[in-house]
Design a binder for these strands. Sequence first.
DNA 1: CTGTTAGCGCGTTCAA
DNA 2: TTGAACGCGCTAACAG
Lengths: 374, 374
Amino acid sequence: MAEKTLDTENVLGYNVNAENVFEKPLTAGVKRMSTTIKDIAQLLHLSVSTVSKALNDYPDVAPKTKQRVQEAARSLGYRPNVIAQRLQSRRTGTLGFVLWYGEDSISDPLFNELLISMLDAAARRQYDLLVSACPLGTSRPAAYERMIKTGRVDGFILDGTDRQDDRITYLCREGFPFVVFGRTEQDIDFPYVDVDGCAGVRQAVQHLIDLGHRRIAFIGLPSFSFCAYDRRLGYEAALEANGLPLETDLIVEVEAGSEENGYSAMIQLLELSHPPTAVMVSSDLMAIGALRAAQERGVTVGRDLALIGFDDISLAAYTHPPLTTLRQPMQEIGQRLVDMLVCLLEDRPLPERHVILPPPLVIRQSSGETRGGP
Amino acid sequence: MAEKTLDTENVLGYNVNAENVFEKPLTAGVKRMSTTIKDIAQLLHLSVSTVSKALNDYPDVAPKTKQRVQEAARSLGYRPNVIAQRLQSRRTGTLGFVLWYGEDSISDPLFNELLISMLDAAARRQYDLLVSACPLGTSRPAAYERMIKTGRVDGFILDGTDRQDDRITYLCREGFPFVVFGRTEQDIDFPYVDVDGCAGVRQAVQHLIDLGHRRIAFIGLPSFSFCAYDRRLGYEAALEANGLPLETDLIVEVEAGSEENGYSAMIQLLELSHPPTAVMVSSDLMAIGALRAAQERGVTVGRDLALIGFDDISLAAYTHPPLTTLRQPMQEIGQRLVDMLVCLLEDRPLPERHVILPPPLVIRQSSGETRGGP
DNA sequence: CTGTTAGCGCGTTCAA
DNA sequence: TTGAACGCGCTAACAG
């Protein structure tokens, strides 16, 4: 959202973030498209309530009328108006997802997969998914509060947790249903699905150690993010378990997981007087940047340098060399998030309140072959 | 959506696509969260309608009461219930977007940008965007029909048009509002935004010709897709304008714009007895695959071979060598689509009914420097 | 200026 | 077994 290429400008001079508490009512433009229960009732000389009951398969309707009604409905192409159903039932049948975007997170390659799997699972459960995009930097609880107060959604799916996450504090206090992709360090219990970044990275780094590496660097994300911190812990744990020293020179923390940041972090590592022989990178996009940096400096990844990423984005298999990485099973994650939230909303017991999935280590060529001693 | 990793399976055995015309009503679980107009009315000993009018700034309310009401509303954190507003106004305030996904289109890198810009523009106009994911292969008009009949949306945004597009035929016949990213060859007039793929590719190929290339290949998408065909026309036009022959050997059409397909198309071209010296590729993702193929075969892109992509995805700047490409201004496209549809919905005149944006040629290293004759 | 009445389309009492 | 009456929360027409 950097550039303002559009010439139509802020057409109404409308400022969404202003203290404009009262959204103006939707104006005019009435159009009738679909058939209603009333139409069927009139056609069949029945009462509206009988038709309604027939359509919803109530037991106290004569089988004959039930059939007549359903046939009429079918032939008229009747579909119940969800807005009316929602008002009546006081349930929106809608799951909310707020997409927090910054300059960099716009092209997050995993988001597509998460979105599609959530949409798919939601549709299967007869729910809509309402996605709302908000720029990072605005108050986060406020965005959720608005959706709650205006009655748009029944519950939320959150992702990208911070170690201390104000959204979770807020939603818990409100008692509004939600599930989370990710964990926090807060002393609050909430339902979540997460990938075990710590164990995954630990396994990956162990793999590097087993290959003979001793100077292993780490390129990570800002440690206020839970998963960033979690992954880093895995890195530290692996070193410690193998009696290797933790050298601060070898740890680079960047602001966002972009290609460019991976590139410059790698340059920084390569310029060290005693550069690492292996690098664990917290995201594939950054790993691709790191790959480019190495290539530019004449360092052959997979031979002179071992590199492991995180995510297993679709391109990871096609880099040069193909990227060893930890795979995030986004399909399963999205599906489970939706299933859990729907359980919550329908007062069904949750099979598992906390799901932690292991990210499988996908070994390709970037981590190289076994090598000699240090 | 290839794998079925989830063990919870089809929990209810519910089949969305079945002839299940009547969605079961949303069950139980009533919860009161927000304050209503009624609450304010009771608190202030006023009638509901007066409060409503005060909130909506009607002229026929005493300034004093208006202020009292607005203050009460503010302090109670009142937000109008959008569901009720929608039922009343018979407008959903919601734009619909159906995301058609296949195996490959899941990781379409441009979709993120389109989505965010649409969400952003919609929010600015006080509209929600309802995204619905449907697998390719199911009836397309049916998906839109369902959203219309159930009263979920006021209008649609379509993308990825075919030269003959059944969705457009359907929506036109229904007289339901929609705008399109892309054009068709049908004899129907509808509002659209599109990128001039023909002119863009023509310019790109001309650039290659100006660099001295004479054997220029084309890797394209299936020609039932409008933009695929459009781009190919640009390729052919450029050749013809320069008196170059059209050689069918040099044209490869793949099924989808994946990295792998770009790779194998490129391999096919390189194995020709008389391979091309330049290749115009219809998408960046495919161009990245083509890059890999060239590299693998020891062909140095930017020197031995010129390569141009299409899209300007964020990674295009970071390939090796950086990719010359035609940039699709997704921000502007998404914004314009939303603005146009909102105009339609609010019966405001459309500034432009047909918008065709030129895709700027972004010259990087993959197209190489000027070279000698053929 | 305010309040009463009506209705958006639906599901759900409770009488008949 | 059917239908009449009510309410979800809101806006809108009309009386007072």
